[in-house]
Design a protein around this nucleic acid. Sequence first.
DNA 1: AATTTGCTTTATGTCAACAATGTTGGCGGT
DNA 2: ACCGCCAACATTGTTGACATAAAGCAAATT
Lengths: 239, 239
Amino acid sequence: MVGLRNIVDNRIKSMLPAPPKQGTLADIASHRLAHCIVTGELAQGQKLNETELAERFGMGRGPLREALRHLEGIRLVKRIPNAGARVVVLDYKTMSDLYEVREALEGMACRIAAVQMSDEEIAQLGQLLDSHEKQIAEQGDGVYAQSEGNLDFHYQIVRGSRNEMLMYILGSEQYQLLRMCRYRTSRNAQRTYPALQQHRHIVEALAQRDGELAEMLMRRHIQGAWRSISETIAKEEQI
Amino acid sequence: MVGLRNIVDNRIKSMLPAPPKQGTLADIASHRLAHCIVTGELAQGQKLNETELAERFGMGRGPLREALRHLEGIRLVKRIPNAGARVVVLDYKTMSDLYEVREALEGMACRIAAVQMSDEEIAQLGQLLDSHEKQIAEQGDGVYAQSEGNLDFHYQIVRGSRNEMLMYILGSEQYQLLRMCRYRTSRNAQRTYPALQQHRHIVEALAQRDGELAEMLMRRHIQGAWRSISETIAKEEQI
DNA sequence: AATTTGCTTTATGTCAACAATGTTGGCGGT
DNA sequence: ACCGCCAACATTGTTGACATAAAGCAAATT
């Protein structure tokens, strides 16, 4: 049972802003903490003890406090003065809001990408989907699903929009956190194949340079994902 | 010549995330720095010397460094390891990207607000515009324009969307910075009256609960604003 | 028995000194 | 005159100790 978790870990790590194995201690701590939060190693709402974490990371409290300040800025932790920092909690409403925003932003990304992406880039996108399909055939639905390749696909389109602001928002740890939740709530991946099909249709629209259609397809795709997730959450809460 | 600058200062301040006159020194420093950056007191790209700023704020370097980390998180400053922090620079491309994102987000906010806002809230929005019109009549076009009341209007609609994520993004200092640029580049406010008219049309659409229309009007409104600003920038760069 | 007061403990906030890294200006060599 | 090298300086990174505020607990009072 080593496989699944590690695969996802690696995929998520590969999308994190940049693995700066060198740099200031605060930067290292910031990324380690972000990683722990995204992977769930640090639970939502968990208290973050400065002394304990500093010791664990082998550094003084100074750099660690700076890391916490940074994470506060990107909204991965919530700080209360004189009472310490806690991992942010993603409740239903928050996730719903996030998906709403995501629909708007990625829809826009799609529309712009239809104009901005080169033919070659779009072709590569198609190849990416081919490899995903192969992966599904080999490993079965559950693993692929909403987690790994999906991220690459969406991120590549955002890159295609050439909008730095957008790339930042979607690459930020805040979004990674959302992805972690998405992963956690998508083991029941009946949506795998339909999702892949939707991806294909989006690529088609891009290839035809039909931005309006591409946006619409992406929006529906994300709406569908959210419906699936919110149903899963509802089920979990019934138990 | 005390009037204009102070008015704008106060208005901007009134929209900043929250004036925590009490709290940790790092929080205070963070907000003071953010304020200085937004108002232009600290120029874009300016080097931020830790020792100097700490002394100026009457605190040690520790809290100030934490403040810088926080500002880095919300992208108001850019840090280079072992080389210090600088105020972020908003070049043309960045502003363009930001406006693109803004169009998508505020458009969405408008569509949702048309469903979510209460009749009373919409009525208040109308009254807000009345007061704006009166203000224009009294003070002349230039002062109102793109700066003050405009912010309230847009922010009220975002609030109407009930989307916390959106409210955060639009309330963040990053957005304040954009507003500062907008202010700086909008003295030539021929767009004042048309803008007010567009605001009125948006409120009408909201009152009729026509989300689609409201979104479309908002998007056009923001596109128009961007066009005006980008023209201004182009003129300035010619000189 | 419940509440409140005050102490103890724990964790956060702050500072000042030290170490490491970048930067600048001058020097000699080509 | 130009380029690379080196040393002195300035600034950032890091640490440990100290101050301060919140949380937990026990005892005393009502």
